[in-house]
Design a protein around this nucleic acid. Structure first.
Length: 585
RNA sequence: GCCCCCGUAGCUCAGCAGGACAGAGCGGCGGUUUCCUAAACCGCAGGUCGCAGGUUCGAAUCCUGCCGGGGGUACCA
């Protein structure tokens, strides 16, 4: 059930009946009303249509209405202002739709008729570095998009393109060779790796202290030594390769722990190292096809006069991440045959992706949508981007711990009667949910200022608010000793006896609009905005009308059905965001 | 220099393939509890949508210029 789609289909028919060619272009102008005074949906197409046909919009609007076969679903449409067509859904129609949705696990959201294959590239942290808040966005947004596209019936392949072959490994190898603590390594290798990484970073900073920014690395003996270790690794040096093989599982275990806590899973974890053996051949192929050329000792692809060329092999013979990314495109195309590959990556890499996509097209990959799903930076309190090397980034795990700690404090205060382990479990779900929601509820393209209080807020438009609404509904069912399944089975038209109930019904039926918007624009905040409206609509009912003590039995069942649907919608919506619910809180 | 993004209420942000008086959260002020969880609800205050032009019946939304901020820009990823 998608109300908007239904309305648009009716308008399409009406426009066709009026001999208007290509009606599709006008159907976007049918949308939810900007103000509930104007009804539930409004069609703004008479004005542009009037201009195109050279006819008065209001007359045209009247003609369109005359050809609409919407009597069952809407009240008689009204024409307003310059030619707005205002639509108000009939309450009995809304009630009937709810009845249809009630037994459906998908709550009326239909799967797409033509599933597509999406490869989603997200999270992709550099291993051997602690994850920080900057990694959160990619990880959480990517996970949400994967869940959402999958729910809509698409084939989704998630791939964590780890940075497991870069300079940070040179740093680790250098650290291992010079500063390792054997005992610590045996006791807790992950922690020791972290110590070594931080230590080497510190050494580099010390060594480079006097150098200028530009020549820092050239003038920095420690950085130079690290680069040498990286080069040896890439050249296949047995000792470094062996060290890499030893360290990788430790690094992965560290990442895995955080992903488990965030309930994030990948179908594949094919890092940069996986593509290393293919790079020589990729460059050869691009040269042979005349896509790449030699320039100043490097192998590059010239794109246009405005841009510097993309380098796919450096003067010293080393490959760049452009090379790796090209190899990755080819591998994914051959193995998964996707219709789309989405890269959920920081907007600062937009030039890189622009170049990557252009080269991929020249290479022959034209029948695939390559999309950079970019997002803004996390800014520090000074409104400047948090950068790892500035050391200003908050480590992810510390963030999660703090979130859970705060949630725990509130649980302890509000529900001291619950057993200890229960409260801990609730705090985990609420805390992690707060962090995820704070990120997902914002338009991903915006930068945002990192702020503990905001990110961990538990009031306003937050996961906690939704979880709370959910828990309260579950509490109603517990109090009344009512089984939701029975309420769903009663095939009786719900009674929308008040404006609040009618409004809630309307929002319940808009779930698919929200999900489809989120999927088509790759923007989770459409789902959070929807949940916020829904939860508000529910609270308005809950606050003003008794449910268990409704005036009569029919109304009681009717309201319980609304409750049940609301709870399931919240759970489903939060689920798409990768956020859990609890029965009590 | 060139390219990209951003500038909306005290703060953080929605809205931007043009549409009906610009929205929300937080913060501030004031209310609501014999009632299904007050992690809730209701009300009030608060905005020249950076500035100036332009296109349009209609511009926060599109175009141009300017101001301010961020990012990127041949061998880091």
């Amino acid at each position: 059930m998608n109300v908007l789609r239904l309305l648009r289909e009716h308008f399409r028919q009406a426009l066709l009946a009026l001999n208007i060619s290509e009606p599709e272009q006008y159907l976007d102008l049918i949308r939810p009303t900007s103000d509930s005074r104007f009804g539930d949906y409004q069609a703004n197409l008479a004005m542009p249509l009037g201009k195109a046909l050279g006819r008065p919009p209001r007359t045209l609007a009247a003609e369109i209405i005359a050809h609409l076969a919407l009597d069952e679903a809407t009240e008689p449409p009204e024409i307003a202002g310059p030619g707005f067509i205002n639509l108000r859904l009939r309450s009995d129609w809304l009630a009937r739709q709810l009845l249809h949705v009630a037994p459906d696990d998908r709550l009326g959201v239909t799967a797409v008729s033509v599933p597509q294959t999406f490869v989603l590239d997200y999270s992709s942290p550099n291993v051997a570095k602690p994850m920080h808040v900057g990694h959160l966005r990619s990880t959480i947004i990517g996970d949400c998009l994967a869940r959402t596209l999958r729910f809509l019936g698409h084939r989704v392949i998630t791939d964590n393109h780890l940075g497991d072959w870069g300079t940070q490994f040179g740093m680790l190898i250098y650290g291992y060779k010079h500063y390792r603590d054997e005992q610590a390594l045996r006791r807790d290798p992950v922690r020791e790796m972290l110590r070594l990484y931080v230590l080497v970073r510190e050494k580099i900073r010390e060594a480079g202290n006097t150098a200028e920014e530009d020549e820092e690395e050239a003038a920095n003996p420690v950085a130079e030594a690290c680069r040498l270790e990286t080069a040896k690794l890439h050249a296949g040096d047995p000792e470094n390769l062996e060290l890499w093989r030893r360290m990788m599982p430790w690094c992965l275990a560290e990442l895995e722990r955080i992903y488990r806590r965030l309930h994030i899973q990948f179908d594949y974890t094919l890092g940069e190292s996986f593509y290393h053996p293919m790079l020589t051949e990729v460059v050869q192929d691009l040269l042979q096809r005349g896509i790449a050329t030699y320039s100043e000792g490097a192998v590059v692809v010239f794109l246009n006069d405005q841009q510097p060329p993309a380098i796919i092999r450096k003067r010293d013979g080393a490959y760049t991440y452009m090379t790796t990314d090209l190899a990755t495109v080819r591998y994914r195309m051959e193995r998964f045959r996707p219709e789309a590959i989405l890269y959920v990556v920081d907007f600062r890499q937009s030039l890189h992706f622009q170049q990557l996509f252009e080269i991929a097209r020249r290479w022959g990959y034209k029948n695939v949508r390559l999309e950079h799903v970019s997002f803004g930076s996390v800014m520090g309190p000074d409104r400047k981007p948090i950068k790892t090397r500035e050391g200003g980034a908050v480590e992810l795990e510390a963030l999660l711990d703090e979130a859970v700690r705060r949630a725990r404090a509130i649980v302890d205060m509000n529900s001291p009667e619950l057993p200890e382990d229960k409260r801990a479990q609730i705090a985990e779900v609420v805390g992690i949910g707060a962090v995820k929601y704070a990120d997902l509820s914002q338009n991903r393209t915006s930068d945002y200022v990192f702020n503990w209080d905001k990110m961990l807020a538990m009031d306003g438009n937050t996961a906690t608010y939704m979880q709370y609404a959910y828990a309260r509904i579950r509490s109603v069912f517990r109090k009344g000793d009512i089984c939701p399944e029975e309420i769903r089975r009663v095939q009786e038209m719900p009674r929308l006896s008040t404006p609040e109930e009618r409004n809630l019904a309307l929002w319940l039926l808009r779930l698919s609009e929200a999900i489809e918007n989120a999927a088509s624009e790759y923007r989770p905040n459409h789902i959070t905005a929807y949940l916020w409206e829904l939860a508000n609509a529910y609270h308005a009912v809950y606050q003003n009308h008794p449910i268990l003590k409704a005036p009569d039995e029919t109304l009681r069942r009717s309201r319980l059905l609304l409750c049940d649907l609301t709870a399931r919608t919240i759970k489903l919506g939060l689920g798409l965001l990768g956020i859990g619910t609890v029965e009590q809180m």
